[in-house]
Nucleic acid binder design. Sequence first.
DNA 1: CGACTCCTTGACTTGTCTCAACCTAAGTGG
DNA 2: CCACTTAGGTTGAGACAAGTCAAGGAGTCG
Lengths: 265, 265
Amino acid sequence: MISVRETNSLMTGKDILSMRVARMLFGRNLSSRVSSDELHILNQAQWSLRTLDSGVTLFDQGDDCQSVTVLISGWALRQQNLPDGKRQILDFVLPGSLLGFSSSARNSYGIETVTPCVVVSLPLRQFYTLLSRVPALAIRVAEIVAESEVRAYTHVTNLGRRSAKERVASFIVQMMQRMADIGSHSSPYQFELPITQVAIADALGLSNEHVCRTLSKLTADGRIRMKGHRITVLDPKALMRDACIDLTSAMSLENSAEIEAALAA
Amino acid sequence: MISVRETNSLMTGKDILSMRVARMLFGRNLSSRVSSDELHILNQAQWSLRTLDSGVTLFDQGDDCQSVTVLISGWALRQQNLPDGKRQILDFVLPGSLLGFSSSARNSYGIETVTPCVVVSLPLRQFYTLLSRVPALAIRVAEIVAESEVRAYTHVTNLGRRSAKERVASFIVQMMQRMADIGSHSSPYQFELPITQVAIADALGLSNEHVCRTLSKLTADGRIRMKGHRITVLDPKALMRDACIDLTSAMSLENSAEIEAALAA
DNA sequence: CGACTCCTTGACTTGTCTCAACCTAAGTGG
DNA sequence: CCACTTAGGTTGAGACAAGTCAAGGAGTCG
């Protein structure tokens, strides 16, 4: 559950909320990329705040795009469903993500919460007005979308050209990187995955049984340890070899791990 | 080959070129979305023009992001390569696409031309300056990236949850839609695919042999006809059923087909 | 005319799915 | 406090979709 304290601090005032959204979207670059004039405009945006339970549908695939949403805290997922009932999870959505921005009139995917979530949203028209008045935000939005585009592309490669073992291994490596980037855990090699194996299967295009078998194998091979939903990566290099990840991508991981370690010290 | 006439008309003057790039990016909405002041700034951009042969690498996965490129004419493809030599084609790039825009320092994918291409590019810094001075362009860039993100997501679902037959069928349906959107052929049910079956296989995560078998089966079942690289869709509805595409997506296709027919009349 | 690329077809192999049973932990209600 | 229910995880056996290997055909280029 979301603590009452946090919700209260968010609601102290409209300007504080919009400020927090701006920080969420820009990260630590807020002051360097946004002029004080622009910041003033950003602060006037009337974001509306909501707290959602876990397992709730934020919007469905095919819904009209009426508003843009920013995930403030919690986990969600993007998914597409096929007419025959099969499900594909497109991406796991972590805080700071932008949801529902699209040039088409209908959403091509649905969003469902995985844990309890705090989200803010703004009607699409107002968001467009904001973008046109704050170019820095428009640029940042393009960057954020480009980031999830990159994740989508690596996902395509995972599903198209990697075996089950490689997919599971690279999934763990990727989640490890993303968790380290958010900096939500002390060690970059240990993190909590608040999802079921069925969800992993639906993300990786596998059956849940095969995911289970593959995870067992990785555990037996000494790559990872699992306790409940906590995953510990015991042998990152071997895991990356299993994942069939090349050195250039691996380098960026090592950097972020180093940065993380430096921050923790 | 690119005709000499076209190349000449592009090169008549710098301002004509940048104007054409703007029209490429905004489509028919240019005048409604860009003010005359903004248009003036857009026209001052120093795009540099290049003509490329087919099968040429525009940039490689892992290269530094130094410039942003817009495809003016021709076909290209985005791809990722795995260390063990396997290749995944992420997307086919049609005129009007934006290449190399990314918030990270390195490209996560490579671009290769499929046919001879005309491209224009602008150093990344200059592009950012342009974006901050022309908010409408920044918004449009966000939209363009969001469009390819949507394509990437549907690609993920194809690879993760569809059988070979379904993948090939939905690939054909999707290409049909995209070609109709560009309006490059008189009939929306007939179009030229300037790619080999190996490329289709690398896009759909299949072996080329299996793509061949699947295409033969679709032909035998009366869904399509193939002559060289020209594909004729004989039974669009059955093909969409084969593709496991639901009615909402199908509707949008029928609309675009109708629009196309109306335009041709 | 070879030499090359791309496509096609066949036979065999294998990775992953499906189905089915069972286990475990965490509620839930009497 | 315990029996019941339920969701999630685990394991096994058989089936099948797609990959691999191999060989040959069709078209094109120099």
